[in-house]
Simulated scan of single mutants.
Amino acid sequence: MMNQRSQTGATLIIVLVVLLLITIVGTLAIRQSLVSLNIATNGQAQQLMMESSDSAVFTAQDADNLSQEMATNGMFGYIRTSNNKGKELVFCYRGTNTDFFTIANASIIQWQTGSAPNYLEIGTAGYCDPRSSSNYYTSGRGVVMTQITVQFVDSSTDDTPFAGTVSGTDTDSAKVVSAEKAVVHAVSLMPTLSTASTSSIYSCLSTHMSNPVVPTGYTASSGADQSISECLAGLNVPFTTHISEYTLTQTLTSSS
């Protein structure tokens, strides 16, 4: 009787050990599957955000739209004026909109007197807003947001001598328009993949510049000199930033 009880006890121990091993193997398999799923999800997210940024930039540089964008109410024309140099024109790329850009859905952000950028010069319609029920996304799926900023900077800071100058032409004597350098940032993000609050994400998009340069003599308040990318990175928001530089020059043609 004692021998039978001992055998029964030994069998129970063996069964428990086998169950423990099965549990460990199953847990490891589930963990591996979750890691693989996260890698695949991250890869798909990066691909979607890159495609959204590329789509926005390709539309911005489309030659068919360039004449319209260079008008005084266009994407480049409005911000290239002398009193707007250094400011950033901001708008949210909405794939469902018929027009890529309208000044009515744009904002201006710039560094002014004080310790942080002023983002209210012409209103807040240009900033992507994850808090809103309106569609600020690049498509009807409501997954990716892409915010565009356009800034004209001093082309004299270019490392290449005479960058953008028409070859063989003196700008002053020929009355040729001087070359101008425009920088376009396209920041794409996926708010739904972040644990950050929509208010914090909106604060990054609306109160930070893509290319913040603190004027000489000013002291930035804590975090105010962060770029949008740095702000989003601090919140662990998935994003990509696409930066394009353009040199706008006057083309001279001869007629016979």
Rank of each mutant, 00 (worst) to 15 (best):
Q47C: 07
A116H: 01
F162C: 03
T247N: 10
S155R: 14
L193E: 13
M70W: 07
A125V: 04
T41S: 13
E69I: 08
A220I: 03
V176D: 01
V144G: 04
P161C: 08
T216H: 06
A196Y: 07
N211P: 06
Y218M: 14
I14M: 12
T247F: 15
S115M: 08
L19I: 13
R31D: 10
T240I: 11
L12M: 14
G142C: 02
P191G: 00
T8R: 07
A71L: 09
V144W: 00
L248C: 07
A56S: 08
D159Q: 11
E121N: 12
Q4K: 13
S133R: 09
D170N: 15
N73E: 12
V25L: 14
I24T: 13
M2N: 13
L89M: 09
T241R: 12
T27I: 09
Q151A: 10
S173R: 13
G26K: 10
L193A: 15
Y93A: 11
M190T: 11
G74A: 04
S227P: 02
S134Q: 15
V90W: 00
V17E: 05
T171G: 03
S197A: 02
I148R: 07
A163G: 08
T11F: 14
L248W: 11
D154P: 03
T98H: 06
L16V: 11
H242F: 14
L252D: 01
L34N: 15
N118Q: 13
T157K: 10
L252P: 05
V166I: 11
Y127D: 02
G74V: 02
L235P: 02
S244R: 10
C231L: 01
E88L: 00
G86H: 08
V183H: 00
G140W: 06
T169K: 13
V177H: 10
S178L: 10
E245H: 07
G126C: 03
G217M: 00
A220Q: 05
Y136S: 00
F152Q: 01
S156W: 08
N83R: 11
Q147K: 04
F239T: 01
S133P: 09
N211C: 06
V184T: 10
C92N: 01
I109R: 07
D154H: 02
S200W: 06
A174V: 08
C204L: 11
V237F: 04
N65G: 06
Q110E: 11
Y136G: 00
L20R: 05
